[in-house]
Design a protein around this nucleic acid. Structure first.
Lengths: 217, 217
DNA sequence: GGTACCCGTTACCGATCGGTAACATTAGGT
DNA sequence: ACCTAATGTTACCGATCGGTAACGGGTACC
């Protein structure tokens, strides 16, 4: 069981594994265990133990297990923002390069050997109807889709909404299918995305200049 | 709570609601509750109660809760076979019509107001690593994909494997996204599928006759 | 050095849950 | 009417789990 603890913490940030504030360790452990085993299958004792602490200090930082789940989901949402921010920052002002970088990220995710579906989607499957974390998940997914729409529009693709939906759903389907069908279809998604980008119509080729049709940013 | 029981049983087969063998009632109730609330969130007592019986007779028909889960998953797999068989039987010897009928089925699923993702995929999310039901789920998903490949090939589409993956993953992504993003993207999937069928290349138009390239049924 | 504050430890509680035993009851067949 | 088999009923067990109380120990800050 010590190996499990180390696996959980080592994924966090390289060297300084165990000398962080307990709340941080707990979130790291929760992130690992919740994703690998599901929200209901892992108890607070297991999380506290994997975080190299105990249940009492866990409850000093989180009012309840549901509160911890909410923090877990918020953590995932923040990580999503961070990844997106990095993709945008590393390819400034170049929509197509940003899209390509996003596909590279998709490839990283789908080839990760620990991939077990989108953690947010998996959490949504296990959450009861009125759990506050649901709103966070919905907001996060909606934002992701809207950002794809904006990127496709900025890259002057036709039908950016349809294209964003298609790409987004292919990604989601690939992630969820990994634990049902293995890596087969998922690995082909990256090629399908790149081919989609190559074959989708763009207004560049359909019109001469680019003066109108600017509906938003 | 009586309404819940009736909702669970009424979905089964019209009139003769409660006078069926208990094992059948239990499977009906399990199907309803497991799908709506998840495998871990619903206890055997709740299932027995919804099945208008009690825990003891439940355990006379199923060795354990995991055994019931396995039966639940097998039931879902059988229903999938049945739906597919109906689609095939109602459109004999006409691959494109069968594909169109399958899209109609997809539309039915995605517009169902109780849709909460693919029950098999949701179950896989909640199942621990070595649960016997996983093999059933994987086999079912693999079969679905292979049948799509065969249909695309029979309808003489180019790249039937890629096309099947694309269509299959779009469907899966749409289902899982319904509880994260609402019906928005999911509803557009049907149009995307029909457009895909219309625009995808077919060997009909690329070659003259159709003599070779018959790899299987 | 004292004093807050945070953390670790232990023990415990109540509720729920999966699963079983023993017995009563019904229904079906002959 | 009788026997048999399946179902209903009640009560119970052990384990687990979410959550709390109380105490003891370290540490940083003044």
């Amino acid at each position: 069981m010590n190996t499990t603890q180390l696996n959980g913490l080592r994924r966090a940030g390289s060297a300084t594994l165990a000398k962080r504030p307990p709340r941080e360790r707990i979130l790291i452990a929760a992130r690992d265990l919740f994703y690998r085993n599901g929200l209901h299958s892992v108890g607070v004792d297991a999380i506290a133990e994997a975080a190299l602490t105990n249940k009492m200090t866990l409850y000093r930082h989180f009012k309840s297990k549901d509160d911890l789940i909410l923090a877990y989901v918020n953590q995932l949402a923040d990580e999503g923002e961070e990844v997106w921010g990095r993709i945008m920052a590393e390819n400034p002002g170049h929509p197509q390069k940003r899209l390509d970088a996003w596909v590279d990220y998709v490839e990283d995710v789908l080839t990760n050997k620990y991939e077990r579906g989108c953690a947010l989607a998996n959490a949504a499957v296990e959450l009861e109807g009125e759990h506050p974390a649901r709103a966070v998940i919905e907001g996060c997914k909606r934002r992701k889709r809207e950002r794809l729409v904006k990127l496709f529009r900025a890259a002057r693709y036709c039908d950016p909404e349809v294209l964003a939906d298609e790409v987004f759903l292919l990604f989601e389907g690939a992630r969820i299918s990994i634990q049902c069908e293995g890596k087969g279809p998922a690995l082909r998604v990256v090629r399908m995305l790149r081919r989609l980008f190559a074959t989708a119509a763009r207004r560049d080729r359909l019109e001469g200049s680019a003066k109108f049709e600017r509906r938003d940013v």
